[in-house]
């Protein structure tokens, strides 16, 4: 094995370790969070008000809050995924330059990164929407 192959293998190993480690920590934290706040032992179930009308309003408010929370965590998750993809592509770009990949290929990677940023961070498609918030 020549030094370039060893270098590439080491870089790939480090990148995979970082991603793998990050996912492991995220899973552990998520389970820990479930254990603390999601378990019925810690938080007693809230049955809401006794009155029927008040109960309907309470249920609607609770469902709206839950839907909003789900949307928010979904949006945060998308941000994390975009960051991971951009980091991975940057690592590939770095390694590609070490092994002497052509300028065209380097530009191709840059264009993929740019497309990801344009779509997920800059919301370019909102230009065609009717004044909606993204």
């Amino acid at each position: 094995m020549d030094s370039t192959t060893i270098f590439v293998a080491v870089v790939v190993f480090i990148v995979m370790s970082i991603i793998g480690g990050g996912i492991t920590i995220a899973v552990v934290l998520y389970q820990f969070n479930l254990l603390i706040s999601g378990g019925a032992l810690v938080v007693p179930p809230d049955t809401g008000p006794e009155d029927a009308m008040e109960r309907i309003a309470w249920k609607k408010e609770r469902d709206d809050k839950l839907a909003s929370k789900t949307r928010l965590s979904g949006a945060y998750r998308t941000g994390v995924m975009v960051l991971l993809w951009l980091a991975l592509l940057t690592a590939i770009e770095f390694v590609a330059s070490m092994i002497g990949v052509s300028t065209v290929a380097m530009f191709l990677i840059a264009f993929i990164k740019a497309a990801i940023i344009l779509q997920f961070f800059m919301h370019v498609s909102s230009l065609w929407l009717e004044g909606e918030s993204h």
Binding site: T90, E93, F94, A96, S97, T103, M106, F107, I109, A110, K113, A114, I117, L118, F121, M122
Partner: peptide, 14 residues
């Protein structure tokens, strides 16, 4: 950030 996506490889890698 988008501009740097092109500047970084142009300056450091290509």
């Amino acid at each position: 950030d988008l501009v740097w996506v092109f500047f970084y490889p142009a300056i450091y890698l290509m």
